[in-house]
């Protein structure tokens, strides 16, 4: 974990995560890069490019786990980084840059997922049939050649949205409890509760998948 962060209060109407708190400021490992962005953008994009290189993979991976689709994840990643480019001058350092950034990423994923859900609802005239087909594809995909992250992805896809989000933020985005609390805009106790429950469910689903994988391996 690369940041040490104290809990600060998050206002629900503060979409960009500039939290109002007079408590101790968090230690932000990205402070220098952010300060350079604020001083140099839009003329000089060198510092922004460094931030992009540092976080692009983690952001993309988070979007991919949350949205379950590579193209959607790419678009959400691009949208989020564009927003960061335009809003970074307004970042006041009341949370770490990483928390602020993931709040933007999370909001973009939520918006995109809602749109996707509406689109799918319209398209799914044969919903059950499609689900059966999806399950078959998953079963076929669970071959011995799949790497661990793909099994994790399959297990995540089976979770409820709420559980998938928090598992992703913890294990893929590598956020601390306090950071997740700010990103999700819920209380710390609720974050703990959700994370604990989600981990239990994830374990159950993952182990079920592992059993299928082992049976497939033994059968081949």
């Amino acid at each position: 974990m690369e940041t040490v962060e104290k809990k600060s209060e998050v206002k629900s109407d503060d979409v960009e995560g500039n939290t109002e708190s007079n408590s101790e400021r968090p230690v932000d490992v990205d402070a220098d890069l952010v300060a350079r962005c604020q001083a140099e953008l839009p003329g000089n994009t060198a510092a922004y490019y460094e931030l992009l290189q540092k976080y692009e993979s983690m952001v993309y991976s988070t979007c991919y786990r949350m949205l379950g689709d590579k193209l959607e994840a790419e678009e959400a990643t691009q949208d989020a980084f564009l927003r960061i480019f335009h809003k970074i001058t307004q970042f006041e350092g009341r949370s770490t840059f990483k928390t602020w950034m993931f709040r933007i990423v999370y909001n973009f994923c939520m918006t995109r997922r809602r749109k996707l859900a509406t689109k799918r609802e319209r398209e799914e005239t044969v919903g059950d049939e499609l689900q059966t087909r999806t399950n078959e594809v998953h079963r076929e995909a669970m071959g011995p050649d799949m790497d661990n992250s793909e099994y994790v992805h399959l297990a995540l896809k089976e979770l409820r949205d709420e559980d998938r989000e928090i598992i992703t933020l913890r294990f893929i985005s590598d956020l601390s409890l306090e950071q997740m609390t700010e990103v999700l805009d819920i209380k710390l106790s609720a974050t703990k509760m959700r994370l604990y429950r989600a981990m239990e469910k994830f374990k159950e689903v993952y182990l079920r998948h592992q059993k299928v994988r082992e049976e497939a391996l033994n059968g081949s």
Partner: peptide, 24 residues
Amino acid sequence: GIIGPIPPPPPSQERIDRIMNAVM
């Protein structure tokens, strides 16, 4: 212990370039 490490995918220069183009 059960799932082991989940390494993030390697950074994609193609994706990074696309974002930079959009930003510019």
